[in-house]
């Protein structure tokens, strides 16, 4: 997350703006979900899934709202949210590459896939690249073991893949190789120089 960019910073991307539950159309969507589960405390996990779908991640502000609406102690809401691996507390990248590290994929070289993507795009496992383009995640078996090793590129399954093929597939959805070079980031923005890389 670009903490450095202040509220008035010119380069601040709109989707990184702080979540404001009250005057945000997303709040209405959440309200709808809460109604659907009739504000039942035992629906907390469902509600957290909904929050993640709507906002992309779980922010403290929204967790507070959830605690209030479901009448749950905030410590319980945070306890549940942090227990389950699928909930994220930071925004994900524009594209997500999730490498399966289940047993079948492990035996068929999942580690090499992670290494390959990590090196080619300059993004560490479990993290999002600084420019917000790509997140590299792991999953424990996505249930396509017959096609190991597999990865998910956004929602699509990339089956029986190799580091080279996976890297190529990621390039194809529009992610450039290597982390954005410093000089490319400022000044002459707009040209699609990097696209050919």
């Amino acid at each position: 997350m670009s903490v450095a960019a202040g509220p008035g910073a010119a380069g601040a991307t709109p989707d990184r703006a702080p979540v404001r539950p009250d005057d945000d159309p997303r709040a209405a969507l959440l309200e709808k979900q809460l109604k659907k589960v009739r504000y039942r405390a035992d629906a907390l996990i469902e509600v957290l899934h909904a929050v993640q779908d709507i906002y992309g991640f779980l922010s403290p502000e929204v967790l507070h709202t959830v605690a209030d609406e479901l009448e749950l102690p905030p410590s319980r809401v945070l306890g549940v949210a942090t227990f389950y691996h699928l909930f994220s507390f930071e925004p994900r990248g524009e594209h997500t590459c999730t490498v399966c590290t289940g047993t079948a994929c492990f035996v068929k070289g999942a580690d090499a896939l992670i290494e390959g993507v990590s090196e080619a795009f300059g993004v560490a496992k479990g993290e999002t690249r600084e420019d917000g383009k790509l997140s590299l995640l792991e999953a424990r078996c996505i249930g396509s073991c017959g096609l190991a090793p597999v990865a998910l590129l956004d929602a699509a399954v990339v089956a029986k893949t190799t580091p080279e093929a996976l890297v190529a597939a990621i390039r194809k959805v529009g992610v450039n190789g290597e982390a954005v070079a410093d000089d490319a980031a400022d000044a002459t923005a707009g040209s699609d120089e990097g696209g050919a890389a």
Binding site: T103, R140, C141, G143, C145
Partner: peptide, 12 residues
């Protein structure tokens, strides 16, 4: 829940 990583019987 099919937690065993490397199995997909129940999924199917």
């Amino acid at each position: 829940d099919e937690g065993d990583p490397g199995a997909y019987m129940d999924r199917t």
